[in-house]
Design a protein around this nucleic acid. Sequence first.
DNA 1: ATTTTCAGCTTACAAATGTACGCCCAATGT
DNA 2: ACATTGGGCGTACATTTGTAAGCTGAAAAT
Lengths: 198, 198
Amino acid sequence: MSRAEQKEKTRRAIINAAFQQLSADKSFASLSLREVAREAGIAPTSFYRHFSDMDELGLTLVDEAGLMLRQLMRQARQRIVHNRSVIQTSVETFMEFIMQHSNVFRLLLRERSGTSAAFRSAVAREIQHFCAELADYLRKENKCSAEMALIQAEAMVILVFHAGADALDASDEVRQRITTKTIQQLRWLAGGSKPPAA
Amino acid sequence: MSRAEQKEKTRRAIINAAFQQLSADKSFASLSLREVAREAGIAPTSFYRHFSDMDELGLTLVDEAGLMLRQLMRQARQRIVHNRSVIQTSVETFMEFIMQHSNVFRLLLRERSGTSAAFRSAVAREIQHFCAELADYLRKENKCSAEMALIQAEAMVILVFHAGADALDASDEVRQRITTKTIQQLRWLAGGSKPPAA
DNA sequence: ATTTTCAGCTTACAAATGTACGCCCAATGT
DNA sequence: ACATTGGGCGTACATTTGTAAGCTGAAAAT
C-alpha cells in the first residue's frame, strides 16, 4: 500500500473512532485524545501526525456532518416528487436518516450550543446551508418574500431538529408520535405564511 | 451563627460557585469538583458534606433553574395584562430574563440534550411544566383542544428557547432582530391553530 | 544504491482529578 | 460539666490526561 493511502486510512480510522464514541452518554468535549487513539488502534502520540489537536478533529467531524445534511436534503427531495404530502415525506425521511446516522446528528445537536465558539459557528454554518436550501424551496412554492421564507425555514428546521433529538432515544412507538406532532407543527407554520394577508 | 445556618451558607456558596463557572465556554460536564470547591472557598473533600457527587449538585442546579422558569412565567403574565400584544410582550420578557440569568438558562439549554440521562429528564420535566402552563393559557384563549394546545405550546417554547440561545451571545442589535423574528414565528403558530378550519 | 522523509511507536513527565482516611474543634445534646 | 456530632481541613494515592523527545523501518526521492 502506498504511503499516502495508508495515511488516509488511519485518518479515517481516527474519524470513525471519534464518531463511534459519540453516543447518548458521551459528548465530543468529553472525548479524550487517548481514547480516540485507542479506539483507532494507534499510539496516542501518533494522533498528532493527522490533527494538531482535538479541536481540529472536531471541526473535521462537523464538516462531515454537513455533507450528510446535504445528502439528507437530496434524499428528501427525491422522495417528494412521487408522493403525497411534502411535509410528511420530509419529516419521515429526516427521522429515518437520523436513526441511521444518530451519532453524526448528535454531534451537530450538541455542538450547536456547545462550549467551543469555533464549533458553534461551524455547526451554525452547516445548518444555515440547510435552512437556505429549504427557504429557497418555500419561496418558490409559496410565493412569499425571501426574508419571510428564511424565517419560516429556520423555524421549521429548529422544530425538526429538536424532534429528532427527542426521537433518538425514544421507542419506535413514541417516535411515531413525535413525527406526527412535528408534522402538525410544520403545517401550522406553512399555513400561516402562505397567504400574505388572509 | 448556628450550625445549620452555616451549613446552608456553604451549600449556597457551592451552588453559586457552580452557576458562576457556567459560561459560554464551560459546560456543567466540564466542571470539576475541585474547581467548584475552589471557587466556593472550601477544601475539595468538604464538598462531600453537602453533595454525594457532582451529579447531585447538577440536579440541584436544574431544580433551581426550574424555579426561575416559573418566576419568568409569572413575570410575563403580569406584564401581559396592561400591554398590547401577548406574544410580543412574552418574547420580550423572556429575552430580558435570560440576559439577567444567562448562566441558569445556559444550563437548561445544554443539559436538555446533554450526556446525562438523569439531567436530560430533569430538564425535560421543568420544561414540560413550562409548556403545560402555556398550553393551558392557549387553550382558554383559542378554544382549541387540550392536545393541540400542548403541541402548539411545545413548538413555541422550543422556538423561544432556541432564540434565547442565539441571543445570549449576540449584540444588542442582533438580539433585537432575533426577537422580531421569533415573534413572527410564534404568530404563524398561533394563527394556524386558532380557527380549526379556515 | 544511497539518502531522505515521515507515520507510528515507546518512554517519560507534569498536571489535574476523584476520593479515602483521619484529625480538629466549635456547636449541640445530655 | 462532659460527651457527641459533624463541618471543614490536610494529606495521600491511584488514574487519566496532553504532549515532549527520540527511535525505527519502510516508502519515496535522489
